[in-house]
Design a binder for these strands. Structure first.
Lengths: 234, 234
DNA sequence: TAGTGGTCTAGACCACAGC
DNA sequence: CTGTGGTCTAGACCACTAT
């Protein structure tokens, strides 16, 4: 087989994708069996199997044992937005990331924190407020509460070299994340730190992370609407 | 082989994952070769290959031909937010979705549209403005331009029964989506339709969709910050 | 040169669906 | 029952890396 071209299984994948993309095989219809494709391409069944299996994993196809292979129902219309670590993102743009620690303190769980962290009143928590800059321009105001049980060394961190995120990822494997994005008019204190007019629309990302079977941290991140956006593509 | 248990390739995957999860094989380290694993499990190389290849596709491992298989570097820290079709979302909450068509017209590409749609000046476009309601409460102001070449029947739609999205998905297979999310203070007209105070912070989703190798539509969707949020979990 | 991953084959046996 | 997908083997040749 000439390897100058694509591998055979990839050629088969491309063929299948093209048939679907061009509408010759419609949603829900059966496509040729593995044996038929093997004959058509002069390939072994294993090679065809790999092509079809991978497309099934990519949810382009759907297989039913004993029945056949079908074109998968149209993908659930969802747009995915990727939210990256702020420091990585700034560096990824080729800019310089820096941060300023506004507050670092220990506190006890009370009121809303008891619900958010699912802990007893009085449970030890750490609290930090940090402003992140992209080339000296403030782009994120981060208010974070951290579970001392998960990150006991949080107060000893040097936030000028590592971000809270990086530390939390290091001390405990992340088990899950829950988040929401809202738009909120900036209150005066936050507007001041972000250097925007009071009441400017801000993107606010609430994020709760889970590690070691507990709530690890609860963070509220404010981004000025005038100079920050989440983006992506499929 | 007793099929009461998991398939062999899956057992091998589980074994590899456990070694990594338990920290016996650390980030960047080499793992045993395919031949070594084949001997260890009494499996053929093809079976081991499948296990390792799938874990590589899941970016748990990294393979270098001629060199070896390594534990992949730390997963890219990204949070994914899913944005669904507004009608589906409202119905998913068990509420009633309705919409009001504020404007429907044909127009020609000019200025910014020429860039956005990548077409010649004068290219036929359709323009619609719709407000979507969740149980009578306005939650989205949708301003959309559509490429007439892709959706020639757009002007004949009954927007009270199907949303633009549903129609566009039906007439042409979606090839791609590009989007961004911003926070913007509501201008007076939009604030009026969303029934919020002027200058209230709004989530704004810009979305460009591609179909038939062209730009299919460009939409700007405004959500009142006070009663809408994107959310999700991992 | 020896060892690694990358691909491929020609069989095989099994579980399951549909007739 | 036949045909489908699901899995597996024991080879094989190749391209590449390391020594």
């Amino acid at each position: 087989m000439p390897q100058t071209a694509q591998p055979l299984y990839q050629q088969i994948k491309d063929y299948l994708l093209k048939e679907i993309q061009d509408g010759r095989w419609k949603e829900g219809e059966v496509i040729p069996s593995e044996n038929a494709l093997a004959r058509q391409f002069g390939a072994s069944r294993m090679t065809v199997n790999r092509a079809v299996r991978e497309l099934t994993a990519e949810s382009v196809l759907k297989r039913i044992q004993g029945s056949g292979t079908y074109v998968a129902p149209r993908k659930y219309q969802a747009t995915l937005v990727a939210i990256k670590n702020i420091a990585d993102e700034v560096r990824g743009r080729g800019h310089r990331h820096s941060s300023k620690l506004l507050r670092l303190e220990r506190g006890e769980a009370r009121d809303a924190h008891i619900m958010q962290f699912e802990v007893e009143p009085g449970h030890l928590l750490f609290h930090s407020i940090i402003v992140h800059f992209d080339n000296q321009v403030p782009i994120q105001y981060e208010d974070r509460w951290v579970n001392a049980k998960v990150a006991p060394g949080y107060m000893d961190l040097d936030f000028s070299v590592s971000t809270p995120n990086e530390y939390l990822m290091r001390v405990a494997p992340l088990q899950g994340v829950k988040y929401s994005i809202e738009a909120v008019n900036a209150p005066s204190e936050i507007a001041r730190y972000l250097a925007v007019p009071e009441d400017e629309a801000c993107l606010v990302l609430y994020r709760t992370t889970y590690a070691l079977d507990q709530v690890a941290s609860v963070a509220t991140m404010w981004y000025p609407g005038s100079r920050y956006q989440f983006e992506g593509r499929i």
